[in-house]
């Protein structure tokens, strides 16, 4: 019988789900993902998680609560770094432990150790699968196909400008409506788990598109382009925040009318980097900082977005 493994729809799901699914299915698991965040999932997350964690981790906990009784294993990799001399936020290092301690009754958590400062991505997944007693060639085949699928997925975002959920095939692709003569171009810069979770983000992305803005995100800028733009930012410690800075730089050159940063309260890395970027950019372009958390009111977000879009339009005229 195939064992069922659950992937919570939160945090790095928005970046690596395709890689994970392909690899795990290749190894013979049946993969179950939690549904898009609902209010119930959100409440469960906030109820179970420690208060000090960031909002995105609370949402993640909600998804774990949803999955834990429905699967044999949970797949929660430990992501310490994805490149040499670059690190991820400590919450990704500790995530499997956070979950294990938050949910003592959770099923066995399977978590490869991803730390590219020590070993390559391939080795990390290889050792992980060997420990599960999977045959070497099966692992190799699964890894190759997972990597190919992941590359296809990333190209769909970079070249066709699909958002992650569309590129994963989890939501309908509606790129055409997006290109309907946009009057303004907005860069929505944040971690994907903040902006593609429509409940947690209060639908910021959709609201912007409804207001007639063409929205660009980090995922839509190619990795090579990002690297070229690092320049002064190359020493930023956190990989994803460095990418945000690079994307801001690149999109500024490409010509956008305004930048919106979305921060999950109380994100440590973002509180430094977003503030730094805001200071760099705000005398060139209108910049809006939005903070999302479990106490947000819809009115607060709506008023700020409306006013921001209007200011961008009036300035352009």
């Amino acid at each position: 019988m195939r064992r069922r493994i659950g992937i919570p729809r939160g945090l790095l799901f928005y970046k690596y789900f395709i890689l994970w699914r392909e690899f795990l299915e290749g190894l013979g698991f049946e993969v179950l993902i939690s549904p898009p965040t609902t209010k119930e999932i959100l409440f469960e997350g906030v109820r179970n998680c420690v208060d000090e964690a960031c909002f995105a981790v609370k949402v993640f906990c909600g998804h774990v609560a949803y999955l834990k009784d429905k699967v044999d294993y949970l797949f929660i990799p430990r992501y310490a770094s994805i490149e040499k001399k670059g690190f991820l936020c400590a919450k990704f290092w500790g995530l499997p432990d956070i979950i294990r301690n938050t949910f003592p009754d959770a099923p066995v958590i399977l978590s490869p150790n991803i730390d590219c400062n020590r070993q390559s991505l391939f080795k990390a997944y290889l050792f992980f699968a060997l420990e599960l007693k999977k045959p070497f060639f099966k692992i190799l085949r699964s890894w190759q196909s997972a990597q190919n699928k992941q590359k296809e997925f990333e190209l769909l975002m970079e070249e066709e400008k699909f958002n992650p959920l569309e590129a994963m095939g989890l939501t309908e692709r509606n790129r055409i409506s997006r290109r309907d003569s946009p009057s303004i171009r907005i860069a929505l810069l944040s971690h994907p788990y903040n902006i593609y979770d429509s409940v947690a983000s209060q639908d910021i992305l959709k609201r912007l598109e409804d207001m007639g803005a063409e929205v660009s995100t980090v995922e839509m800028v190619s990795k090579n382009r990002l690297k070229k733009e690092f320049g002064d930012f190359r020493n930023i410690y956190w990989t994803y925040d460095r990418e945000l800075a690079g994307a801001a730089q690149h999109l500024l050159k490409e010509g956008i009318d305004g930048i919106i940063f979305v921060v999950s309260f109380p994100c440590g890395p973002d509180s430094l980097i977003i503030d730094y970027l805001t200071r760099l950019i705000s005398d060139r372009l209108p910049v809006l900082n939005l903070v999302i958390d479990e106490h947000q009111s819809e009115v607060g977000i709506l008023t700020r977005l409306e006013a921001f879009i209007e200011i961008v339009r009036r300035r352009k005229k």
């Binding site: 910049v287 947000q296 008023t303 700020r304 009036r314």
Partner: peptide, 11 residues
């Protein structure tokens, strides 16, 4: 004569 930027108090 054009509003170009704004901020509002947080929660």
């Amino acid at each position: 004569g054009i509003p170009i930027d704004f901020s509002m108090n947080t929660i």
